[in-house]
Every structure is written in structure tokens, then in C-alpha cells.
């Protein structure tokens, strides 16, 4: 499992990027969420994994005994997930508003603010 996970994460990253590079809004948002997911897994996996033992000190002990899962990536991950949630939901709403205002789902239609205004 530990050996396969990196590949799974790679696949997730690939998939997310491919979705983002699509011109469709909906796929963009799917890609972003997927990419957030892949990042979280990346963060989780790259700290060392411990199967089974969670990061909770047993009722009878006063210190955690090995093997226990590294709580640091977990804590970071929790924070990251929640932050990601905030940003994701904002993005979803943004895309909804964009669709409402522009009436298009094609990202390529949105290239006006980068244009150079003609002056000559």
C-alpha cells in the first residue's frame, strides 16, 4: 500500500491538472478540488505512515508509545483541509457567479481583461 500510494497521488495530480487545463468551468472546479485532495494526500503520505496505531494516548498510559501515527502531518492536514474547504466553496460560488454574468462555460471566452487597449 505504501508503495502504491505515491503512484495514486501522481495519478490524482495528473487527473486534476488535466481537468484544470480543460476550458470548461465545471471541469476547472472539479480539477481544483481534486488537486486539493491530491495535495492533502501528498502531505499525509510524505510524512511517514503508520498502519493501525492512531495518534491517541491510551487510557492507561501518560505518554504515547510507539508505534503511533505521526500526529504532525495529521494536524497540518486538518488545517489544510479546512482552509481548502473555505477556498473551495468560495471558488464554487465564484464560478457560479461567473457563469451567471457571462453566460458561458468556456474559459477561453474570458480573456478581455488581459487585452491591451488600443490607443493608436
Amino acid at each position: 500500500m505504501e508503495f502504491i500510494l505515491p503512484f495514486i497521488i501522481g495519478i490524482l495530480f495528473s487527473a486534476s491538472l488535466y481537468l484544470i487545463l480543460h476550458r470548461h468551468f465545471f471541469r476547472l472546479i472539479l480539477g481544483l478540488i481534486l488537486s486539493g485532495l491530491a495535495t492533502n494526500l501528498f502531505l499525509f503520505v510524505i510524512g511517514r505512515l503508520t498502519r493501525g496505531g492512531s495518534a491517541i494516548i491510551g487510557q492507561d498510559e501518560s505518554v504515547a508509545v510507539e508505534p503511533f501515527a505521526d500526529p504532525v502531518p495529521q494536524a497540518l492536514l486538518l488545517t489544510a483541509i479546512v482552509i481548502g474547504f473555505g477556498i473551495q466553496s468560495f471558488t464554487i460560488v465564484l464560478i457560479k457567479r461567473v457563469y451567471q454574468s457571462f453566460g458561458t462555460t468556456d474559459l477561453d471566452d474570458m480573456n478581455t481583461t488581459d487585452q491591451i487597449d488600443e490607443n493608436h
Partner: peptide
């Protein structure tokens, strides 16, 4: 604004992911 925001959000979201990784 919306158009700018979509680019801003997408790219910076990616930046966030790079930072986390």
C-alpha cells in the same frame, strides 16, 4: 472583476498546493 478573480483564484489555488506540497 469576476474574470480577473477567476484567474487569480485558480492560479493562486495552485500556488497554495505547491506551498503545501
Amino acid at each position: 472583476q469576476l474574470e480577473g478573480a477567476i484567474k487569480y483564484v485558480t492560479i493562486n489555488f495552485l500556488a497554495t498546493n505547491f506551498l503545501l506540497t
